[in-house]
Amino acid sequence: MELRGFSEGYGGRVASWAVDAKEVALLSGRVEYPFPAELRTTWRTADADIHSYLLFDGERPVGYGEVWLDDVEDEVELARIIVDPEVRGRGIGAELVRALLGPALDAGYAEVFLRVVPENAAAIRAYHQNGFVDVPAGLMEEWNDGQPVPYCWMRYDGEQVDAGELRG
């Protein structure tokens, strides 16, 4: 598996991986299904602090995720992580998270976070396997204030997993 930078030619394919309105909302912010055709080429922001990646199995893209850099908060957030439905349940999500941690940690920020809907048990397992831990309940409540849904917020704990293993 290889992590590569995202190119716009894959937008339609990644959009097609969203199997219901909830997954469309997580990728685009719009609760619609199927993924709105007019968003397929514009759903990714051109923000310089957002880096988009595809995980490839050979020449086939199997996962997508973003690394959001925040200079003000001195943190990175892994976001919009999705795996091709044809390969879900095979550990690709965990591998994608490990791959995304490479550029996230290399960015040199103090903290790495992510958020996930609490009912996504498979994703939460993948995040725990890769050294993420839940933030304290009070902080989670604070961060969820104003969010469209209540998320499970997680922080990367480098002591849980050897960061060298993640890059290697």
Score class of each variant (00 low, 15 high):
residue 41 T to E: 14
residue 43 W to G: 12
residue 45 T to Q: 00
residue 46 A to M: 00
residue 23 E to G: 14
residue 22 K to F: 08
residue 38 E to F: 05
residue 28 S to L: 13
residue 37 A to I: 00
residue 50 I to S: 08
residue 30 R to I: 07
residue 58 G to E: 05
residue 23 E to D: 15
residue 28 S to K: 10
residue 35 F to G: 08
residue 26 L to S: 03
residue 52 S to I: 02
residue 30 R to L: 09
residue 23 E to P: 04
residue 23 E to V: 10
residue 55 L to P: 05
residue 44 R to C: 04
residue 37 A to Q: 08
residue 42 T to Q: 11
residue 32 E to P: 11
residue 52 S to E: 15
residue 30 R to Q: 13
residue 24 V to M: 06
residue 45 T to L: 01
residue 60 R to M: 11
residue 54 L to D: 12
residue 35 F to K: 05
residue 40 R to A: 03
residue 43 W to D: 14
residue 42 T to C: 13
residue 26 L to A: 04
residue 46 A to W: 00
residue 62 V to S: 03
residue 31 V to W: 08
residue 22 K to H: 10
residue 41 T to D: 14
residue 45 T to M: 00
residue 56 F to G: 14
residue 43 W to H: 13
residue 28 S to Y: 12
residue 56 F to R: 11
residue 31 V to Y: 07
residue 60 R to S: 13
residue 52 S to V: 03
residue 38 E to S: 10
residue 27 L to E: 05
residue 28 S to M: 12
residue 62 V to H: 01
residue 24 V to W: 01
residue 23 E to M: 15
residue 35 F to Q: 07
residue 24 V to T: 09
residue 34 P to N: 08
residue 22 K to V: 13
residue 46 A to P: 00
residue 53 Y to W: 15
residue 41 T to G: 15
residue 45 T to A: 02
residue 35 F to W: 05
residue 27 L to I: 10
residue 47 D to H: 01
residue 27 L to Q: 07
residue 28 S to T: 14
residue 26 L to V: 03
residue 42 T to G: 11
residue 58 G to I: 07
residue 48 A to M: 03
residue 38 E to Q: 11
residue 32 E to I: 09
residue 34 P to D: 08
residue 62 V to M: 03
residue 59 E to K: 15
residue 58 G to Q: 07
residue 23 E to W: 11
residue 40 R to H: 01
residue 62 V to I: 06
residue 56 F to D: 13
residue 61 P to V: 09
residue 41 T to R: 14
residue 35 F to R: 06
residue 47 D to R: 01
residue 44 R to A: 06
residue 36 P to T: 07
residue 59 E to P: 14
residue 35 F to V: 06
residue 58 G to H: 06
residue 34 P to K: 08
residue 48 A to F: 02
residue 55 L to D: 04
residue 27 L to G: 05
residue 45 T to H: 00
residue 38 E to K: 10
residue 29 G to K: 01
residue 39 L to H: 11
residue 46 A to Q: 02
residue 29 G to E: 02
residue 52 S to Q: 14
residue 60 R to T: 15
residue 44 R to T: 05
residue 36 P to F: 07
residue 31 V to Q: 02
residue 56 F to Q: 12
residue 39 L to G: 04
residue 42 T to F: 13
residue 31 V to E: 05
residue 27 L to M: 10
residue 52 S to T: 13
residue 43 W to T: 12
residue 23 E to H: 15
residue 54 L to P: 10
residue 25 A to C: 03
residue 25 A to F: 10
residue 40 R to C: 04
residue 23 E to L: 15
residue 40 R to D: 01
residue 22 K to N: 10
residue 31 V to L: 07
residue 41 T to C: 08
residue 47 D to I: 01
residue 57 D to T: 04
residue 37 A to L: 01
residue 62 V to L: 04
residue 50 I to Y: 05
residue 32 E to T: 12
residue 26 L to I: 04
residue 34 P to R: 09
residue 54 L to F: 09
residue 57 D to L: 05
residue 50 I to L: 02
residue 38 E to H: 12
residue 27 L to H: 08
residue 40 R to Q: 06
residue 37 A to R: 09
residue 33 Y to W: 14
residue 42 T to W: 11
residue 48 A to T: 05
residue 29 G to D: 03
residue 22 K to I: 12
residue 33 Y to E: 06
residue 51 H to R: 09
residue 37 A to D: 11
residue 42 T to L: 14
